[in-house]
């Protein structure tokens, strides 16, 4: 079951996790000890902003400059799934 992440939670990438762009497959990937995640474009944008400073709500606001119709709940849901995969931790 996916846990719930609040909009004021502050996500950050865990140690040992690397976010990169796979030139061959032309996709954003997250490399971590247990596996590989292949992100779509918006997920990559969210992960890039998981800096341990911005909250989920602030990430949504930032992405609002680039994307139309950003849903903060989508971001919270993604972060919750990344926490489950032990790619991201949240404070708060």
């Amino acid at each position: 079951m996916t846990s719930v992440v609040a909009l004021d939670a502050v996500p950050h990438i865990r140690r040992g996790v690397k976010c990169t762009y796979d030139q061959i497959r032309e996709s954003h990937v997250v490399l971590f000890p247990e596996g590989v995640l292949v992100l779509n474009e918006t997920a990559a944008s969210v992960v890039a902003l998981c800096d341990g400073v911005r909250s989920v709500g602030e990430i949504a606001l930032s992405l609002g400059d680039v994307y139309a119709g950003v849903e903060p709940e989508d971001i919270a849901g993604l972060v919750a799934r990344l926490v489950e995969r032990r790619v991201v931790d949240v404070d708060g």
Binding site: L37, V38, N40, T42, A43, L63, Y67, E71
Partner: peptide, 18 residues
């Protein structure tokens, strides 16, 4: 000065393959 309207990309639900 005329600013072109900003074209924002359409939000797609963020997802990943595992």
């Amino acid at each position: 000065e005329q600013k072109l309207p900003e074209v924002k990309r359409e939000w797609v639900k963020p997802d990943f393959r595992d």
